[in-house]
Nucleic acid binder design. Structure first.
Lengths: 202, 202
DNA sequence: GCTGTGTTTAATAGGTCTATTAAATTTGGC
DNA sequence: GCCAAATTTAATAGACCTATTAAACACAGC
């Protein structure tokens, strides 16, 4: 029936807890307790907490990365619009993802090096950057977009999107919003961000 | 000469370490070691780690808050420009501040309640929100700014500014930037943010 | 020089955490 | 039903962390 159920269970529980509280604040005892097994079992299957964590971190990092792999559309504006949609869609389903990644990258040097190697310096990443840049330069040359560097545009967009999700726990807490209100809020934010970006680059 | 030197020293060292690594990752042993005293002395002066931390957190929170208290200018656009300048100036001198505050607010419910009580629900904060809103509505009514909610505009600006500083360790690490390059980068970002905001709301 | 007060230290209690070890238990193949 | 391998547990080593306690030290005022 449930083959190697506990190994799966541990991995899944660890994912929840690491995303919720981060690496430091999550103990293997916590994971075992929530997964319904002995703490030693966590080490039996994954040997170290670091191992277990890295399996999850690599997966989540890949999720963030995958959003960059966007279909090359003819129209820059459409591509950009789709990109924002895709990113928002991903993060609406994984609200804790931005803070999780950022937090681990800031706190730990080795995680930063790992991310750099796997994402920033990957040929794929560099290729996509080139594609986007070509499209942007064409837009600028043809006067549909004001002169702006891709690095700035990217950081604008990432800032606006990511910070929305990083600050989400504060929003829901400070203003006592329930689940449906949050969903409405997020959709509203998505459109507001598109508006300020598209107006801001034209 | 150096009256109650060690108490001062402990407070100062604690500030550095808490800002650098956060509450959880900083031990009273770390603080004592760096301050050059016995670990028990930290508890002698501040009793608990939490006490010590809260003195620092309250101060830092107040710094963030103080930026909202902007002189009321006649011109909305100037006021907004000055606000961005002030915020950037503060954070350029306190680069770790944004992540420090955000991190503690996200990680701990009680910190969030404290912040809410002291900042979000303070009469001052509400008053400033009202003043800004009046100015914004006037701009919109007179056609100088497109219809936009103050909450959205605020979140746009805060996202763009705060994320610049949150992601700064990644920027300097990934692209191997030195101190002067970082200063240049930050000034560049400030202007780029102003540009996208001002174009984005007109 | 003694005394009392404030400062600093060493020592330690009591807790949690990661990781390991050895023993118990389960399971599948024959 | 039995054996070997895989799974799960209890127990524990060793490290570190917060907070307290009691003792040592410094020094001001007399």
């Amino acid at each position: 029936m449930k083959k190697t159920s506990l190994e799966e269970q541990i991995l899944q529980t660890a994912e929840e807890l690491f995303l919720e509280k981060g690496f430091d604040a999550t103990s293997t005892t916590d994971i075992a307790k929530k997964a319904g097994c002995n703490q030693a079992l966590v080490h039996y299957y994954f040997r170290t907490k670091e191992n277990l964590f890295m399996q999850i971190f690599a997966k989540k990092q890949e999720m963030v990365f995958s959003c960059l792999k966007l279909k090359e559309e003819s129209d820059f504006q459409t591509a950009l619009n789709d990109f924002i949609d895709a990113y928002f869609e991903l993060l609406m389903k994984n609200r804790k993802l931005p803070f999780f990644i950022i937090n681990e990258l800031i706190m730990r040097d080795d995680r930063r090096q790992y991310f750099r190697k796997k994402v920033i310096e990957s040929p794929e990443y560099l290729k996509y950057y080139g594609v986007w840049n070509t499209m942007l330069q064409k837009e600028i040359a043809e006067g549909r977009v004001r002169p702006i560097e891709l690095s700035d545009l990217t950081l604008h967009i990432v800032s606006l999107i990511v910070f929305t999700f990083i600050s989400l726990p504060l929003y829901s807490d400070f203003f006592e919003k329930d689940e449906t209100e949050i969903a409405t809020y997020l959709n509203h934010r998505k459109e507001a961000i598109k508006e300020v970006i598209f107006k801001g680059i034209s």
